[in-house]
Design a protein around this nucleic acid. Structure first.
Lengths: 77, 77
DNA sequence: TTGTAGACTACTGTCGACA
DNA sequence: ATGTCGACAGTAGTCTACA
């Protein structure tokens, strides 16, 4: 599994925990809804600025998104 | 100061701590030397995959790069 | 050893539409 | 509420070269 796929799973999990729709999250973060969809399915590799925007919208630390991603990623290898 | 500028400072600081030249780091990470230079000067916004590659080359956790970045970034605002 | 420039390719991120 | 498509603009990232 590629890094961006793991990140996508983490993103979706946290978004659902926070009870946001993709559209709500997109609006809060200033991103496009279809792009949230692409990221959650591992089709895009967000830049650091996008990671910060997502974290802000989800009300979590950017580093916690990355920590969750690397934890799952490391489990696999 | 923009996110990518803070990230650049963090990157340079850790690279120098580890006593790597830009060229050595670039080679280890599989990136271009001129691109390391661009990032350190805040001229580029790395994707999540690039952050993982840099962290691997520097022998630190990706999340620690982001944690250092957000810590400095939050100080300013 | 690093900064910078220019030219280039590939991909990030937007948008409108439809299932 | 989400996936997907196609078209698009902007930028990530490479490479060569020179100060």
């Amino acid at each position: 599994m590629e890094i961006e796929e793991v990140f996508g799973k983490v993103l979706r999990e946290i978004r659902l925990e926070k009870k946001f729709s993709q559209e709500e999250l997109a609006h809060i973060c200033g991103l496009d809804r279809t792009y949230i969809s692409l990221m959650e399915r591992g089709k895009r590799k967000p830049t650091i600025n996008t990671i910060f925007a997502l974290a802000s919208g989800l009300n979590v630390l950017p580093s916690s998104l990355v920590l969750a991603t690397e934890s799952i990623f490391d489990l696999e290898s």
